[in-house]
Design a protein around this nucleic acid. Structure first.
Lengths: 213, 213
DNA sequence: CCACCAAATCTACACCGTGTCGATTTTCAA
DNA sequence: TTGAAAATCGACACGGTGTAGATTTGGTGG
């Protein structure tokens, strides 16, 4: 029933001002969750272990978050906020080919730095609506940026299953999936190889103007 | 693969011969699980409800399957077995473009017919190793056939992040993800539009010989 | 026909994780 | 300093999974 995330305001349980004490605990909880997400995975970590790592009790954690889902949702949202900056700065390449290379490389960097949280976002999206919203928003943000690049590269903009929007959407999902698999595989150069493959496919799909040299 | 869980052997709990009575119940359980997977989703369905729908008790279900995970894993394996036939028959197109169209259309048909189970496979792969193995086997099977098509279309075969294997792998993951999203969206023509977009991208990525007319 | 053995099923229970409740302590500003 | 809100805690209820042991069913060889 708890509502933690969206409709704060009249909650009565969450504090509305932003003093220091509680905020620190909240961050500590998120940090503990991120830590254990990497080491034990979602199922492996429990509310008890998160609370313990944060130096409080289970019940105390429920003062800050309404559920285990809410904890990891907040964690994903925290990370997605960071991704947004990176995404908005993409697509500035002079040529479409340059923009594609830049977009893929930026995405690869995100997966290198925030791999565990992004992996969790992908895996928990089907189960947690809040995570789905946050993750999807990041995906459409990137898709939007790249749609502009595609149109500049000559891909028709008109509506239809072959227009720039549909094509870039498919390519962004490809990018998500391939990088996700690379992170799951865990191999060292997996991400770099994946990036190379992805730029190649992106360039091919964006037509002659997007082709790499 | 027809044997639901391979680690039986010295189980002492599973029957080894294959009479009729038990097999029917096993199928009834799987059918009930598939039904409820569509109506209530994985979390929404419980071992109790599955057993009830199959006309037995919880404990009786545990005579056939070791866990809830095992049930849905067996369900996925049953479906993947059906997919294999479809996959193996693909890639026979005269021209690469024809083969691509055929492969995508075949895949779309699979999603139309077995959408709920395939969706569950995607969503539960991270959590259930047996499902991950089964689903991944189907993916690499399709990737393998399409790799042949790509090489016939002129994509270099040599090792590297731009070779036919890497490119088709990325495209197959794209196909999986885009069709998955279409099924999740649930809209009627979503799958057909997705198929059109996918054939277009596939053709572009496979180079001049794979290009559509 | 019956006695037996394995298959199949049931009832009852133990365990674990989540989320909630009411009471208690801490903090801090009026 | 005191009172209210913030923060924390111990204990409990609930639901779902998996297990144990006893019991019934069903077919087969004597």
């Amino acid at each position: 029933m708890s509502d933690t995330t969206q409709d704060a305001g009249t909650d009565g349980r969450r504090r509305r001002t932003a003093p220091t004490k509680g905020d620190l605990r909240e961050r500590a909880i998120l940090d503990a969750a991120e830590q254990q997400l990497a080491s034990a995975g979602y199922e492996g970590m429990t509310v008890a272990t998160i609370a313990q790592a944060a130096g409080i009790t289970r019940a105390a954690l429920y003062f800050y978050f309404g559920s285990k889902h809410d904890v990891v949702a907040a964690l994903v949202e925290r990370t997605v906020t960071a991704l947004r900056a990176e995404i908005d700065a993409a697509g500035d390449g002079a040529t479409p080919g340059q923009a594609v290379r830049d977009g893929v490389e930026r995405t690869a960097r995100m997966w290198r730095e925030h791999g565990t949280v992004m992996r969790a976002a992908v895996e928990l999206s089907p189960a947690v609506p809040a995570i789905d919203r946050a993750w999807r928003s990041a995906v459409v943000a990137l898709a939007d940026t790249m749609r502009g690049v595609a149109e500049r590269a000559g891909v028709p903009a008109g509506p239809g299953p072959r227009d720039a929007a549909a094509v870039t959407a498919a390519l962004v999902w490809m990018t998500e999936r391939v990088f996700y698999q690379a992170v799951v595989a865990g191999a060292g150069p997996a991400l770099d190889d994946a990036a190379a493959t992805l730029t190649h496919v992106w360039s091919s799909a964006l037509g002659p103007d997007g082709r790499e040299p």
